[in-house]
Design a protein around this nucleic acid. Sequence first.
DNA 1: CTGAAAGCGCTAACAT
DNA 2: ATGTTAGCGCTTTCAG
Lengths: 330, 330
Amino acid sequence: MAATIKDVAKLAGVAVSTVSYALNNSPKISEETRRKVFRAAKELNFRPSGAARNLKKRKTQTIGLFLYDLGGPFYSQVIEGVQEVVASHGFNLVVCSTYGGENSSAHRFMLEQFVDGAIIMGSSISDSLILQVASESFPIVVLDRELKGEYVHNVLITYEQGAYDAVSHLIKLGRRNIEFLSGPLTSFDNSLRYNGYKRALEDNGLPVPKKISLFGRCLEVGGYQAAKVMLAGSQLPDAIFAANDEMAIGSIRAMSEIGVRVPEDIAVVGFDNINIGPYVNPPLTTIGHSKYELGAIATQLVFSAQRDGSSILLPTQLVVRSSCGYKDVF
Amino acid sequence: MAATIKDVAKLAGVAVSTVSYALNNSPKISEETRRKVFRAAKELNFRPSGAARNLKKRKTQTIGLFLYDLGGPFYSQVIEGVQEVVASHGFNLVVCSTYGGENSSAHRFMLEQFVDGAIIMGSSISDSLILQVASESFPIVVLDRELKGEYVHNVLITYEQGAYDAVSHLIKLGRRNIEFLSGPLTSFDNSLRYNGYKRALEDNGLPVPKKISLFGRCLEVGGYQAAKVMLAGSQLPDAIFAANDEMAIGSIRAMSEIGVRVPEDIAVVGFDNINIGPYVNPPLTTIGHSKYELGAIATQLVFSAQRDGSSILLPTQLVVRSSCGYKDVF
DNA sequence: CTGAAAGCGCTAACAT
DNA sequence: ATGTTAGCGCTTTCAG
């Protein structure tokens, strides 16, 4: 049985309240008593119970970051941004998966108020749940959807514009037959990217293909498979705009396997500017945005404790490498 | 003020214990009462307090995964392995950074028994802390060091052998002057890799360079910088064995910048087989090990609840791509 | 400066 | 099948 504050009090010959004060460095306690208490605590190998403290204080001093999939090249940088500012506030950060729906750790943590605030990315926590639990004592910021409510903030990225820029770039380079490698249709991000794609085509008087290629989640294999079937078609596009870099990379792999040259035969633009980008062959032209900043700003919003939900928009920028052709650099 | 179980009891016109039983689906409760309770709970927007439950039950049903840096291509797969088996036990998973030493979330969580078990990777949680807190009710598994104690388990990878294999591969391919791109000297993993390197050289009657290249943590830039200075030296090696893939990739970047050809002039082997490996140019020959399995097995060990610390050793294998030359494939 | 005591919200005997 | 009640370990008035 682990020692409690009571045991420490007994050993030190003081009251429990004194122990509590001493351990929390309250100025009320004399140096001598404090030392006695610390000695006793060490001797008993005392470790305070976080659960008891949380219960009493009705706070946990921790922020939750809830993501669908904890791996993923995209997330790692936003995690860093979050981590940094959470730590600077002296809070703890837990990152949990939303995988598993109702039974996911993230769900339980939200419901059971294990955290004092949350940053949510990915759609597997429902709007209604978020609105239900958000409150002054539990601010929430969502990263990839528009959701209005008290104590819920949004930080968004100009994905639509980014997609528009990507496709415009392709068009400027002379590509005319540009196909979209899509992520899940239910994804807000994905639809934004599709919209930008469509608008760029229309603004340039190009027809919008009704067919879009789609293979499950935005993973490398998804891009690979989608490209495989695209390549098996009768008429090849001269460019691909992928909903994200991983899919773009997958598509490049599929093409190189059958000898289609990138960018000579087919140009490729990705989205997100993940770390691998510069290393693939050819180095990937893509749309970048600051993932670190996304995390950091979101976290600041959590701490801002504003009742009125704000909505922050972060820019994207085209990052030119060579997967669209050497005219890329101009 | 959020509703408590007491409020629910009052509204439903039953005792608090009845509410508790009902909400926890105890069979003791009649269907009718259960429904009444659920209705009341819903009406009050009742959410149970995890803190109170944890305090009462002295368990949290959550496992902590403590890593130094939550991003990193290496970790993502081990996280997946952990996530999966934690979920299959119906537990929650929190992943926290050990960054910040004593004040890191990970530290606090260990100390304040926020989790029922921990998986620790990276050395910033001290051996003594681990031994201090490990117990029947708090099993710990460490992933990258040997540490014996009750309720502490190790899962290790045959890094030494992997390094041996990597360097032997290089030697078989005719390379004689092989340099080691080292990670932090304090790192257990790194020293294992160095030992394997050294042993392979010795077994083949090759001299062991006293110089090793070293630039901070095992990151891409570290490899880049280390390679830069190496390349500035008078006598170039004909091969590089990097302590991990990221450094290997960084070194390749440094070389391609000044026109040193890989593998013609200098062959490169990495370590860890991270996801990017196949995409860099040239595709990286490396030493692989199953990171998913590492996480999954570690987690099973947490749940095994054995008093005697066990130590599991996972194998590595050479994965041949083309950064060591086309004779690679044989 | 220190001690006594009242809970925080829940669970689980135990009693009915 | 349901109610009463005693804590879990801590913080924090309030008294001294």
